[in-house]
Design a binder for these strands. Structure first.
Length: 542
DNA sequence: CGAGTTTGACCAGCGC
DNA sequence: GCGCTGGTCAAACTCG
């Protein structure tokens, strides 16, 4: 909220109060045309009623100068007319009545001035809170970035070999010496796991320094290998792809430059790797919808459709067409088990301004990706083949609930982890339990977060769980975010508290995206006319 | 006519 | 090496 604007509005309301036209019987009526904080206002009026009376009496005695010339003029003419009538007693009564009215208005004016000041203080306070929140967020992002740099330096410089092993275990896979990872012995792996377990215990409150990725080393190797292979064969790639690869903040999914371990420019490469991981990170949204796509405010162009294994419904591929060369893509597919569930997977970051409707989803998904890649989620299960691991005793969500007492209704199975996904994926499941009011908070506060933040900077460290998949189960189907306007102020404070109390603001994030989906999922979209369930491709026959 | 969709073909990774 | 699969391309097609 713009303090200046609101201040102006308040002044306007005050003007409206004072300049309200007089009624036929000469009494002024105070209108509530622009009534900020109506309830409070009423309470304030009640409180000050008695004070008003006292002030009126005092005004009678002291004949305070109100400065309201208009009224004085009006009084004069009134007096004049009375005099013309020749009725002195009437004139005196009118005069007294006028003075009394004047004093009432004056008292009211004074009271409104007081209230006006109080409102100003409130606005200043809100403004300060907002700025403070911004500072907290910036600090959080910078802290994560610093951690990333420190960890990376430790890996490069290396102190004790043992520490090196630990760091190899902790740092994101893009920083790893793949040769070493490939040659690691089983014994070393076990050692690493135990070390990292200790580390997890030590940094229990700092999830960003989290869990081991030994189990995903094979994936790492294959992933990098895949990337290098793609690079070698990338000469015939389309210009669009090359553009993305050349440094636009978008799509480089298949072409990851081969790592040169020990080179002087390893920092640069590591950051590039980090970037590529950001681009690889996916945010999957499960929502019930009859529509072919959920409406997220963006414009999409379908560029392909394939039958995916194990699912009778084809998977559609879309790319964002709102900006030229926008790297963001998404896949839309119906759930095999429940075809009323639409699974939308987003990938990449927009490289263009977004309309407010798209901003919410885009920044929420990118924030979710950031959260995932920042390693803020512990690996609940190290088994590499768990597709969906329901939270056990120490899940992300449970700890989130601990760290976010203002989110008491986070279900225990809120977060699950998987190590089987080819890319780090956050899954937001919006198909289950109904929402609670606390989950609707932060809707309008969070989305701009990552939009204004250099997301990649948050991702440089502790990508320990890069093969993991966080499934945020127990979504909030049926959520009606619009029914909560009355608690907007509470939302603001709750969102502020949620973020400032703990950098790991995922629960609030989920609340935000849930609200967005709740608003949009049933409204369908008007930007795409394809229907993957009714159209029949040749793939369907295979 | 331009923007968007369809669809067969192609490419690369991966497992056997 | 081969087949399967996921992802993408691009010509043909559709639609407003």
């Amino acid at each position: 909220m713009d303090p200046a604007a609101s201040d102006h509005s308040i002044h306007s309301s005050r003007i409206e109060h004072v300049l309200s036209p007089a009624t036929a019987d000469g009494k002024r009526v105070v209108h509530d045309e622009l009534d900020f904080f109506a309830d409070h206002h009423k309470g304030c009026l009640k409180e000050t009623d008695q004070t008003l009376e006292v002030k009126e009496d005092m005004a009678h005695e002291n004949h305070l100068d109100t400065g309201l010339n208009l009224l004085t003029t009006y009084t004069s003419t009134s007096d004049k007319s009375s005099t013309d009538d020749g009725s002195t007693s009437h004139s005196m009564e009118d005069h007294k009545q006028t003075i009394s009215e004047l004093e009432v208005v004056q008292a009211e004016l004074g009271r409104m001035n007081v209230e006006n000041q109080r409102l100003r203080v409130m606005i200043t306070q809100v403004n300060n809170n907002y700025k403070s929140l911004q500072v907290h967020l910036v600090e959080f992002m910078q802290r994560q970035q610093n951690q990333s740099v420190q960890q990376h330096k430790m890996v490069i410089n290396g102190s004790a070999p043992e520490e090196k092993q630990i760091m190899n275990n902790i740092v994101p896979r893009q920083f790893m010496d793949m040769g070493r990872a490939a040659n690691i012995t089983h014994h070393e792996k076990n050692e690493l796991v135990s070390h990292s377990s200790l580390d997890m215990v030590r940094s229990n409150n700092d999830c960003s320094l989290s869990p081991p990725i030994v189990e995903s080393m094979d994936h790492c190797k294959s992933t990098v290998h895949r990337g290098s292979k793609r690079t070698s064969a990338g000469a015939e790639d389309s210009p669009e792809r090359q553009e993305f690869q050349a440094g636009s903040p978008g799509w480089v999914p298949k072409k990851i430059p081969k790592l040169n371990s020990g080179d002087a420019d390893v920092d640069h490469q590591a950051s590039e790797e980090t970037m590529s991981m950001i681009k690889k990170a996916r945010v999957s949204v499960r929502a019930r919808s009859e529509a072919s796509m959920i409406s997220d405010g963006c414009q999409w162009r379908k560029y392909g459709q394939k039958m995916a294994k194990g699912n009778p419904c084809p998977r559609a591929y879309y790319r964002c067409t709102m900006g030229t060369g926008c790297p963001v893509r998404k896949q839309v597919q119906r759930c095999a088990e429940d075809k009323t569930i639409l699974i939308t997977t987003y990938e990449g970051q927009h490289n263009h301004p977004l309309p407010p409707t798209a901003m919410a989803m885009a920044s929420t998904t990118s924030a979710a990706a950031s959260m995932l890649l920042s390693g803020s989620m512990p690996s609940a299960d190290h088994h590499p083949h768990h597709a969906l691991i329901n939270s056990s005793s120490n899940t992300f969500l449970q700890r989130t609930a601990i760290h976010h007492p203002q989110l008491p209704n986070c279900p225990p199975s809120f977060a699950t982890l998987s190590a089987s996904a080819p890319f780090p994926t956050v899954t937001l499941d919006l198909t289950r339990s109904p929402a609670t009011s606390s989950e609707t908070m932060a809707l309008n506060q969070l989305p701009n977060f990552s939009q204004n933040m250099p997301l990649p900077h948050a991702l440089g460290h502790a990508l320990c769980n890069n093969e993991s998949k966080l499934s945020l189960l127990d979504g909030f189907r049926g959520l009606d975010a619009t029914s909560n306007h009355s608690i907007l102020a509470d939302k603001v404070s709750a969102a502020t508290a949620a973020i400032t109390a703990d950098p790991n603001f995922t629960a609030a994030l989920v609340a935000a995206i849930t609200s967005i989906i709740g608003n949009n999922v049933h409204s369908n979209n008007n930007t795409n006319s394809s229907n993957i369930t009714t159209r029949n491709s040749s793939d369907d026959n295979t």
